[in-house]
Design a protein around this nucleic acid. Structure first.
Length: 390
RNA sequence: GGGUAGAUACCGAAGUGGCCAAACGGGGCGGACUGUAAAUCCGCUGGCUUACGCCUUCGCAGGUUCGAAUCCUGCUCUGCCCA
């Protein structure tokens, strides 16, 4: 095992903030395997690259001989966190959550070492709590403390509602830390407050306090807002190779540098930005699928977009009898059958009108055009999608 | 419980009887230019229609009117102030 000082050096890389390094060093010096906590709410079955930033760090801890404690928030997920502006999150059934948790773990283990991971569900201790215990837990935290939290404060200033149970979230999360005796809690920078509450609770329980270990938040594909499902700017770990590759190719150059450090832990190579981006995309596909699929995705991207050779690209096959003979119906059918995307006829008409649709590399802008979709022909729909007539 | 302001399309926001499928901004999509980058320019952005046009939509349910996002009644939800 590496010296505590060396470990700290390794761990610091890529982190946003550690409270405090001195405390962490002290813990590392004890020489025992530390409990490194990371919590997740299994509200969706798949995870995205944003979350892997923390998972990678956790893996690093494991490689240094520490114990990962992955907390699946089955309890918290079931309540449904209604934060966010407009809609209340649908409450999930226990079955859905457990299914999500299962696929979540599967994906997390693409990064984590299962041998050094303890997975626990927080329903284990919360479901059995009675009201008295809950009140008692609540008595440990002040309202002022909770209201100081940035996102609550700003929501109140904006005049948005904050429901009472939301201010319990930090407490719930903090109690998790007590239950698993966390030495370190990992999280994004937006977790600072929650993790600090964990420290408070641990102190009250006369326990050593956990170190707060924050990772930067990964920006989503738009390059501005943090990667999240609801903003639809994410790359899912389970996205098919071509899609994953394509999404990465669409990011800005600035963002690419960041992805290199946060997702690969490396600096961006000093090549042409486009080559650097292809390399980034290839490696991410390789990591979450396989080396071969990474190479294949790169090759396919090259034929499709760099050489603009749709004829030799891998495209979904759509039987000609589904397409009909008018272009509008064909486009709609191609979206549904090739990509499971529902477009209205108006959408399709717009695409045709605006010159997005091509049949056999010829732009079709006349929506009255009657075409024969011969087998093997390529129908281009938009920038990224095309189908082959089967 | 009392008072008061509000609920408009993906989001923000205008519109307060007909000229409203609803200004404007953002986002999204498409085109040109590119490196599926950035920047810029142009177009589109409820459904059906080649089109004329038709249909559904302005929190929900009723009502007034030739005609309602706009007026009336009730309900639901939210902010703020008071208790």
């Amino acid at each position: 095992m590496q010296s505590p000082e060396a470990q700290l050096e390794i761990l610091k890389h890529g982190s946003a903030q550690i409270l405090s390094e001195a405390e962490l060093l002290t813990k590392l010096r004890t020489g025992r395997a530390l409990n490194i906590k990371l919590g997740v709410d299994p509200t969706a079955p798949d995870i995205h690259l944003g979350f892997t930033v923390c998972l990678q760090k956790l893996r690093q801890f494991q490689d240094l001989g520490h114990q990962a404690v992955l907390i699946i928030g089955d309890f918290t997920a079931m309540i449904g966190d209604p934060s966010g502006r407009s809609k209340t999150r649908p409450q999930l059934s226990h079955d859905t959550i457990m299914a999500n948790a299962k696929s979540f773990q599967q994906q997390a283990f693409k990064i984590l070492d299962p041998a050094k991971t303890r997975t626990v569900f927080n329903g284990e201790w919360f479901e059995v709590m009675n009201f008295e215990q809950i009140i008692r837990l609540n008595s440990r935290v002040t309202l002022q403390q909770m209201l100081h939290r940035e996102d609550f404060r700003s929501r109140m200033e904006r005049g948005d509602s904050v429901r009472l149970h939301e201010i319990q979230y930090p407490i719930i999360q903090g109690w998790d830390s007590v239950m698993v005796k966390a030495d370190v809690e990992l999280g994004g920078t937006d977790q600072l407050f929650n993790i600090l509450v964990g420290r408070d609770l641990q102190r009250e329980e006369k326990m050593p306090e956990q170190v707060v270990f924050l990772m930067p938040l990964l920006e989503g594909l738009d390059g501005v807002q943090k990667m999240s499902k609801s903003l639809n700017n994410y790359v899912g770990v389970t996205d098919p190779p071509a899609e994953m590759f394509g999404k990465i190719m669409s990011i800005s150059d600035t963002l690419m540098a960041r992805y290199y450090t946060l997702l690969l832990g490396q600096t961006m190579p000093d090549t042409h930005p486009m080559d650097a981006k292809k390399e980034l995309a290839r490696r991410l596909v390789a990591q979450y699928h396989s080396q071969e699929e990474g190479d294949a995705a790169l090759e396919d991207f090259n034929t499709r977009f760099s050489k603009k050779d749709l004829d030799h690209a891998e495209l979904p096959l759509v039987p000609s009898d589904l397409l009909g003979s008018d272009i509008i119906s064909a486009v709609v059918a191609a979206y549904v059958s090739g990509f499971q995307i529902t477009k209205s006829r108006g959408d399709a008409r717009r695409l045709v009108e605006q010159g997005s649709v091509q049949w056999q590399s010829e732009k079709i802008t006349d929506m009255k055009a009657v075409l024969t979709f011969a087998s093997g022909g390529v129908l281009r729909l938009d920038k990224t999608r095309a189908i082959r007539v089967g």
